[in-house]
Simulated scan of single mutants.
Amino acid sequence: MSENLTSGLGRRRFLLSSLGIGAGAALTACTSNAPAGGPPAASAPVAGGAGANSEPGEQVTIGFSAPAADHGWIAAIANNAQAQADQYPDVTFSPVNPTNDIAQQIAAVQTLINQRVNALVILPNDGSQLTSVGRQAMEAGIPVINLDRIFDSPLAYRTWIGGDNYGMGVSAGNYIGQRLRDAGVANPVIGEIAGIDNLPLTQQRSQGFADALQTYGFAVGPRQAADFTAQGGQRVTANLLQAAPQLDAVWNHDDDQGIGVLAAIQQAGRSEFFMVGGAGSANAMRAIQEDNTVLKATVTYSPSMASSAVSVARLVAQGRGLSDFAEREVPASITLASATITKENVGEYLPLGFES
């Protein structure tokens, strides 16, 4: 998952729902990593056309590079980008092989630059280490749509689009804080299972969580950092549960690692607390809907951002703006809102979920 914009780059932040390119206006089928015989995966959400934006323009080629699909969220990113490109008769989509090797990703993007694609959508393995290749593309006249993990310099991209990591923490903290306050819990023990601690995105999520809880007079209690995998989630949750014999609530940053988190909770036979997830996977939403685990909510960080990134790349490459905006140019940054999904509204969000 991503790094959010630094404060200096956050001068223009737009909620995606206001752009007229919001994902989910239509759905299209795509392959998924759902197990055979399991529940069907949600279709890839695609951005709906809005006014003049839906009119065919000049033919453009959009290059695409992202990490390898080592978990459901990344798989959904690639599926959504392809599904969105398929909506446009004026777009040739040119993805390179996904990889978790930074040197290989740099080489793949350089290949797209040499092919003179009209625009690039890049979700870097590491924003800092791919900043130089983003700048190479921009200096070659190829606009870069920087998806999710942000480059170090605004000179490396035309537009950044991604989720609100701090807002995820705020949403989770507000849900937990309000629920505990309503239950009359005075001094709750609130656990946190984070992602990778040295990533700015994890730090931002944790800061938002702590700040929101503070408004209720609460504080974060036992905290463990995992690695956005089910295996890591299970391992660190087992440690956290051993160290904390009593909990009132837990926030897990990521629904992919949440598979392991829930497994550890079930193995420990613990049920005295409730849990909030993160990202909005379909399996997490189904668990919330069925209401038979400690998982009662999740806060969104939707991979539908990839659908909108392709839409934005098309408009930029064609020299067009957003038809519902007064400005002639596509914005320099687009930040998605983080919604809180509960049993009451899960039906609205389930079609946008991704399979972990």
Rank of each mutant, 00 (worst) to 15 (best):
A210C: 05
A297K: 00
D90L: 08
I288K: 01
P124R: 08
A238I: 01
S308K: 02
I193C: 06
Y216I: 06
V91Q: 02
T159I: 02
T202E: 12
G347H: 06
A29P: 12
N100H: 09
Y349Q: 03
G258P: 02
P56D: 05
V96I: 11
D324N: 15
L295I: 09
G221Y: 04
V261A: 00
F274M: 05
C30Y: 10
A282T: 09
S18Y: 11
I102L: 11
P39H: 03
S17G: 15
A230P: 00
A230C: 07
T335A: 03
T31F: 11
L27T: 01
H253E: 12
P98S: 10
D324Q: 14
D227F: 03
D152W: 01
A108I: 10
N165I: 02
Q289Y: 01
E3G: 14
R179Q: 15
A81V: 02
E272L: 06
D182K: 02
Q231V: 10
P143M: 03
N345T: 01
D126Q: 12
A50T: 15
E272S: 14
T61V: 10
G278V: 06
G72R: 01
Q203M: 10
S7Q: 15
E3K: 10
I74N: 00
N114C: 01
S43P: 15
I145L: 14
Y216G: 08
S338N: 11
N97L: 15
L15S: 13
S43W: 10
Q207Y: 05
I74F: 00
Q59W: 07
A309W: 00
I106Y: 00
G217L: 07
R12Y: 13
Q289F: 03
A83Y: 00
N53F: 05
L295R: 06
L322K: 05
S132P: 07
A34Q: 07
R314C: 01
A238L: 10
G51R: 11
G217C: 09
S338C: 08
P245Y: 04
F228T: 07
Q267K: 14
A238H: 08
E55Y: 09
E348L: 07
P331H: 07
R179Y: 01
Y157S: 05
N345V: 01
T335E: 11
S302C: 08
A183L: 11
L315V: 05
G347M: 07
I113D: 02
A297Q: 06
S323N: 08
D101A: 11
Q59L: 12
G191M: 08
I150V: 15
A156H: 04
R11I: 13
G280L: 04
S271T: 14
N125V: 13
E355Q: 13
E192V: 12
C30G: 12
N283Y: 00
Q234K: 13
L123R: 10
V121G: 01
L199M: 12
G8K: 14
S302D: 15
A103Y: 10
T340P: 06
G169T: 01
I21P: 00
L155N: 15
T31G: 15
E55W: 09
I288H: 02
A282V: 00
R116W: 07
A249W: 01
V294Q: 06
Q87F: 05
T300P: 09
I190S: 01
F228W: 15
R235V: 11
D324R: 14
V189T: 15
A287S: 14
I193E: 06
P154R: 09
D291A: 15
G208F: 05
V294C: 09
G258F: 06
L262Y: 02
